[in-house]
């Protein structure tokens, strides 16, 4: 028995792309059991763009779960975008969990946008000016919420869905100087503490698809410019055909 997780991020939809993504989702019901969207659904973060996203991803034959990304906050209309998506039957995770029934198996998904700060040994700390403290605190609080959400999740498989990256592995190709704005090791630490089968993220358009947390959780960067395919499909709980 396996669960097939389809995932893509950073689709950056707007009126100029209306109707273009939908065709790429034909047949997704035969290929996957759930579709996860890793944020940056829009470009400007307007409710109008949110409606384009809702129309592209509504009424699919499989459940759709998403988080928001930094672009989705740009117009200070994140709440309205969340409402538009939920009205279209798309689940939006904001530092919380959901359970998806996939046949006889249950998939737990913990998700939120995540945030930056950098990676162990080369990261920002909660020290100094209030702005710097607030920046790092935001990531720490998210990490604590994810830790808690994972702890309470008793399912056959667990996936974490984020916009920001938990590791440097999947940022390879991005300028080193911007790593602290692309993710934080605190996100990985929370997940490694409780365990998960897979960590999905986007945000790093110039990065690579595959990485690992220090604790051995598989990380996949599904930003559309990285995947260059409509979505990736990851199979959990299946026999590895190459072993």
């Amino acid at each position: 028995m396996k669960i097939r997780v389809a995932a893509v991020g950073d689709v950056h939809l707007g009126e100029d792309l209306r109707g273009r993504y939908r065709g790429r989702l034909d047949g997704i019901g035969e290929r996957a059991d759930v579709l996860l969207l890793a944020g940056d659904l829009t470009r400007h973060g307007t409710p109008e763009e949110g409606r384009v996203v809702a129309d592209e991803f509504r009424d699919l034959p499989i459940p759709v779960v998403t988080v928001l990304g930094n672009h989705d906050y740009q117009s200070d209309a994140a709440d309205e975008i969340v409402e538009v998506l939920r009205d279209a039957g798309i689940q939006v995770l904001q530092d919380e969990s959901t359970v998806i029934e996939c046949g006889d198996l249950r998939l737990g998904v913990v998700g939120g946008k995540g945030f930056g700060g950098g990676f162990a040994g080369k990261c920002a700390s909660e020290f100094g000016e209030p702005q710097m403290k607030a920046f790092v605190r935001h990531t720490r609080e998210i990490s604590e919420l994810w830790h808690k959400a994972l702890k309470g999740l008793d399912t056959d498989h667990r996936v974490v869905l984020s916009h920001y990256s938990p590791v440097k592995d999947t940022l390879a190709g991005e300028p080193l100087e911007i790593y602290p704005f692309l993710g934080s090791y605190l996100l990985a630490e929370a997940v490694d503490a409780e365990g998960a089968d897979l960590f999905i993220h986007g945000h790093a358009h110039s990065g690579v698809e595959k990485g690992l947390t220090p604790g051995g959780v598989r990380v996949r960067n599904v930003a559309l410019p990285v995947l260059r395919r409509a979505y990736a499909v990851y199979s959990l709980g299946a026999e590895d055909p190459e072993v």
Binding site: R229, A230, V233
Partner: peptide, 13 residues
């Protein structure tokens, strides 16, 4: 412009 292909093969984890 990013060229997007079909979904491709699934990866077993």
């Amino acid at each position: 412009v990013v060229e997007v292909r079909g979904p491709g093969e699934e990866e077993t984890l």
